[in-house]
């Protein structure tokens, strides 16, 4: 099951029609990569597009609960620390 938090129920109902929450719970992704994942569900996998307030709520929940810093479920045996930030990123 998905852990408690704002947007939990919306996320649950948006994401379980096709697969279990296991595939969601086992990721640890940044906001950009979650957004891209949702877009991909819509573009390639028949997910109905999420409208603005709900999309933001779900995205917030995913990043909060399954962001890169959160514990992704399952064994992740290697922890070679990456650099703290991308020194080559211009912005």
């Amino acid at each position: 099951m998905l852990p408690a938090g704002p947007g939990r129920d919306e996320t649950f109902y948006a994401c379980v029609p096709c697969h279990s929450t296991q595939i969601v719970r086992r990721q640890g992704l940044s906001r950009e990569r979650w957004a891209e994942t949702i877009d991909w569900m819509v573009a390639r996998h028949n997910m109905p597009a999420l409208e603005a307030p709900e999309r933001t709520l779900i995205l917030d929940y995913l990043v909060q609960t399954f962001g890169p810093g959160a514990a992704a479920e399952g064994p992740r045996p290697f922890y070679t620390p990456p650099p703290r930030r991308n020194p080559f990123q211009t912005q």
Binding site: R26, L29, R33, E73, G74, R76, P77, P82
Partner: peptide, 14 residues
């Protein structure tokens, strides 16, 4: 896949 850091998307195969 689980060797990647930051985590890569997909099934967490060891």
């Amino acid at each position: 896949r689980t060797q990647f850091q930051p985590p890569a998307r997909g099934n967490p195969w060891t």
